[in-house]
Nucleic acid binder design. Sequence first.
RNA 1: GGGUGUAUAGCUCAGUUGGUUAGAGCGCUACGUUCACAUCGUAGAGGUCACAAGUUCGAGACUUGUUACACCCACCA
Length: 868
Amino acid sequence: MSYNTNKNLGNRMDLPEIENRCKSYWARENVYHYDDTRSREETFIIDTPPPTVSGSLHIGHIFSYTQTDVIARYQRMSGKTVFYPIGWDDNGLPTERRVQNYYNITCNPSLPYDANFKPEHNEKDKSPRKEVSRKNFIEACEMLTSSDEGIFENVFKNIGHSYDWNIKYMTISPKSIRVSQESFIDLYEKGEVKSIESPTMWDVTFQSAVAQAEVEDREVQGHFHDIKFKIEGSDENIIIATTRPEFLPACIAIVAHPDDERYQKYFGKKAIVPLFETAVDIVPSEHAEKDKGTGIMMVCTFGDAADVAWWKQSGLPLKQIVGLNGCLLDVTFGEGAFTSNNPDQANHYYRQLVGLSTKQAREKIVEFLRATNALQCEPRPLTHAVKFYEKGNLPLEFVSSRQWFIKLQDKKEQMIEYGRKIKWKPQHMQHRYEEWVKGLNQDWCISRQRFFGVPFPVWYKLDANGNPDYNSPIVADRSQLPVDPMIDVPNGYTEANRGKPNGFIGDCDVMDTWATSALTPQIAMDAAKSAKVSLPFDVRPQAHDIIRTWAFYTIAKALMHSHTIPWKEVLVSGFILDPDRKKMSKSKGNVVTPQHLIDTYGADSIRYWAARARLGVDTAFEEQIMAQGKKLVNKIFNASKFVFNIVENSKLKGVTAYKAHITAPMDLSWQYKMSQMVKQATEAFSTYDYATALETIEKRFWDFCDNYLEIVKKRAYSEEDSSAVASLMQTIDTFLSVFAPFCPFITEEVYQVRPWSTEEKSLHNTSWPKVDSFAGIIAQDSVLYDTASEITAEIRKAKTAANVSQRVPVAKVDISAPEGVISILRQGLVDIENVGSIQPNALVLRPSTELSISNILLDLSAIPQKTA
RNA sequence: GGGUGUAUAGCUCAGUUGGUUAGAGCGCUACGUUCACAUCGUAGAGGUCACAAGUUCGAGACUUGUUACACCCACCA
């Protein structure tokens, strides 16, 4: 079916109609289909970022995704088949959080499945969250993500992104889970993944371990507490400054710097922890700094990351007092590691802390300290940086638990080496990557104690007492994948063995969402089902905030799985900033949503706005650029309509092989400029510099409308001249092609209804113009056109200065120019006289060393009557 | 404290390897426009290229330092 049976541009541009017509035509004709019969050399492969569907789609996404689409469209026109998948990142904590809020539910894995439960959204529902089973919760997640994905898909289609929608994936789909679990098994077999019990950064709200990359520092208000510790066997006190006095019960040592003279005398002695009467060693350690706090500090398990590091090398027993929910555990002094010189007193105080949050416990302990005169002075306020999970509201705790880790610390050098094999655009983004790799100090914790994610394909044997054996897990066979170990059963067992002595249990954790996102190339390859789609891909577009996560983890996985870089180039887009130059984000409440902008300005105008910005450059949101885009789109429409009209009234009506008619020197001179434009735009695109390409094209286009079109207008309308008409046809065709990656809608519309169109084919499946194709229709240079433009400008200036209409005739004008230029000018004199309304014989050419236009005399008697 | 980037007209941004009088769009001012387009056109005003020193015949661009802003990392008693 053809694009538009009317074959008519119409008088006014109707953008919504044009956009709808294009969208259905492109879908109908499968215009953006990936052709797997083409060779790898003829294929351009993009590792599209799957957007997080739980977030809101804002104009910043449209910005960066459109930049990629412009590149994809150029590559397609330049002769490659483009593998351009789209996926949704829908698994993980962000989705769970959204689902919890949206349906007012929370997951309790111990509950049985309720087949009748239907999640419902009710904004007014302020009741406590309803607890639902794991399966019900996952179903609710699937329900909401699928509707969110529909909304995203529509916006992306509305903005004209040329994904092949046949290769769409979801990170939570069974296929992705299979790829992700295969990755896990491969790394397990290679010994790159390990499960260990270790203190881990722990979010108490979501009750899950988190990885280094998900942690951010926040400045918070806190207090210094100066606490008196007695020296055992003496009347002396030392003053320990701490922001976390609630960790007094977990104190394992007191440390000061070995060189600190103030405390030398105490090394080897013991200090008595107030309230709990625990005797702890005072030891020298480089870990302490002389000029921080009082220079002497307590080590607890665990107040911060430094405590963890110190404890690991100390060999001292663990005193875990904070539980997984962030509340103080029930421990008894006088038992195990919790030694005390006075267990009764210690327990008297500690009993009052059990079950309190760390914050509540802190306040309580301060009361006790104050009452027992153990505070040197009242707490002193300070602001300090504290680690938070990036999506959490409470500080992280360090809690010892069993987690899966992927070994990364032993690969830092290789990671840097691989990073250098990849081209980064802009180049400086590679520094960010390297700095991150250099600063890496933990392996990658990939297990999350959550529900909506990729399960570990792992079970554990239970011994005769029902205790799991974590040291030799049962890993699923590849043929079983995807598996959910909470539902599926390992080979050699039956469901009846689940949870029974000598039976098995499934690993109930899910993987970090990045463990799956880092496999987008592998997931896309799986979806492609074609050997042509292979590593390394051509480009990975992404934003700079996730270099340390997405880019880093993807490089890590490609390295471990196949010893290759995942892509040849990373194209890093900038952010859209609000007018205060702050990053646009939902949490800041400064988000601009795209759909109303698309409705207001049209998709092509939004795309124009996005394509104006260079890669990696953060840009302030400026709606006027979209208005500028709309003017351009309108101009493309009107200039085309005008040329169509000329063609319809010319001898070339119905002629498709128009090129041979371009013979007039002025037209050849203009086509030279067009060929230069194509050359420059092509060069810019070859380094993915779409913005420079657009700038070049747009500049020439306005030049065309303002000058060339005016210069040839009269000649094009004349009966005997075909050159001008043919040149206009050639010009329109060229502009449609070069604007196509930027403004796919208006260009397709114009292309399809050209009176000289021949084939039923989308513009977007045609070829990008080649400089060679201008052979035979260009002059050696553009001197004639440039000089004519200059003369035209001078005459316009004179008329403006005289406050008269541009249509006022010129009675006399002297043009001095070098001999060579004069002879060239004579070839286009008619056009110059036409555009300037210069009377016959009024233009006088004189030889000179340089061009000058002077003595412009206007025939004021011929001023057109002004209408009242 | 470390790293990276940015600083050019009222605003948003270009400015290639150093080279005449530093550009565009918007905004502002003036004028014009029946003949594709008022979603138009022509022109004008508007700049100590953040600051300082240096290299050079010549610096918006190169070097060094300073300041401001942004992002990333670290510290976080």
